[in-house]
Amino acid sequence: MKILVCVKQIQDPEIAPGLFKVDEASNSVVAVPGIAQVISPYDEQAIEAALRIKEKTPEAKVVVITLGAASARDVLKHGLSMGADEAVLVEGPKNGSADGFVTASVLSEAIKKLAPFDLILTGRQSADLDAGVVACGLAELLGIPSVNFAKSVDVSDGNVVVDRVLDNGFEKIQVQLPALVTVSNEMGPARKPNLRETMKASRKPMQSWPQNDVNKDAGASQELIRLYVPIKEKHCEIIGGTSAGETAQMLVRKLRDGRLI
């Protein structure tokens, strides 16, 4: 069984909010010098989902694939250090294309070259653009069924069974392989790379494909007009009494005065 996991390299979403800065002249996020880019956390959880399947199906092979600049090798290496078997870099713009149609088209061409495959896993959305468009697009372009927002993914008898997160519950969905599944944060924390796998990672196969090799001009579907950080105008009043009782009293009075309770 072959599982492909599509991942993306992004600016670390966990950095201090004060370091997040947008250059409004160029409509782009200013890179924080010195802070390494990371794998998008939802994609990291997709690798986790793949590795959990591999634990039950040891013959499964997990291939991590990304569209990005040479620096994106770092996120592929991260996947290999977690336990994936192979990696493919599809060379393209740093942090991929912002147009989901372009990304899906380029990735689908690359994935066709990796056929046959059984399952494609990826994060529910990238944690930078937060669009959640590419995965469904990939499935459409490849003509395979897809299931979104998985909490768990199991493979058996040529099918994949997904616990899919709904607004108010779950549903258990079964589709025939090959299929695509997007993984939601409810999958739980991804494993950390361990040193042994990390040491092995540099000896695992990592291919690099120039984009023109796989690109099919998809044509832009959208244009970014403006990127900005909304202004917050809030001031926090800290309430602190000398004891928990007093603090509670101050809070409740305040809320009562403001007719909030």
Partner: peptide, 10 residues
């Protein structure tokens, strides 16, 4: 505290 937040420590 707002200083420590800028160290990105975790």
């Amino acid at each position: 505290m707002s200083s420590v937040a800028l160290s990105n420590t975790n």
